[in-house]
Amino acid sequence: MKEFSRADRIGSQMQRELALLLRDAVKDPRLSEVTVQEVRVTRDLSHAKVYFTILDKSEAGFFTQLLGKAAGFLRRRLGQAMKLRTVPELKFVYDSSIEEGQRLEALIQKAVASDSGEDDG
């Protein structure tokens, strides 16, 4: 069984804490629409990429900027909640993997439907 590294454990805890902070502590109500999908922390714990999703993917750029402006506040609150000596610098990235998965699923369904249609003839 694979052991999780310290960076993985901190990333998991950061994901939970960020979700709570976005829901409860941030003054901008629009940020409560953000879902934190994953947090990847570098091995030296200096940087963290926060992957997020929102319902309207056309506003991804706007929310990336909005989260970037709130990064200092979120980082400070993470430091208080997690009691880390140094809190990683946060970089927010829109996670398009869900849309990509849906697109691939649709392509697979289309290929299966066309294959079964050819076999009937």
Rank of each mutant, 00 (worst) to 15 (best):
A7E: 02
E3N: 10
R40H: 11
D24I: 07
D56H: 15
L78S: 01
V34T: 03
S5N: 07
R30Q: 09
K49G: 12
S96N: 15
S114M: 13
G68S: 11
L107K: 04
Q80P: 08
G79Q: 02
E59G: 05
T35K: 12
R76A: 05
F4H: 12
R30K: 06
T53D: 10
L84R: 01
V93T: 03
R85Q: 02
A60F: 11
R23Y: 10
K91Y: 14
V26E: 04
T35R: 15
L74F: 03
R85C: 00
A81I: 02
A48S: 05
D28E: 09
Y51W: 14
R23P: 03
L90V: 09
D119L: 14
G121Q: 11
L21C: 01
S114A: 15
K27I: 07
R30Y: 06
G101S: 11
T42D: 07
G61C: 04
H47V: 10
T53A: 14
G68Q: 08
L104N: 08
A19K: 06
H47P: 02
K110I: 01
K91A: 15
P88M: 06
Q13A: 08
E89H: 10
E17P: 03
G11I: 01
D8V: 02
E100M: 08
A70M: 03
A81D: 09
E118G: 09
S12V: 11
Q65R: 13
L31V: 02
L20C: 10
Q13S: 04
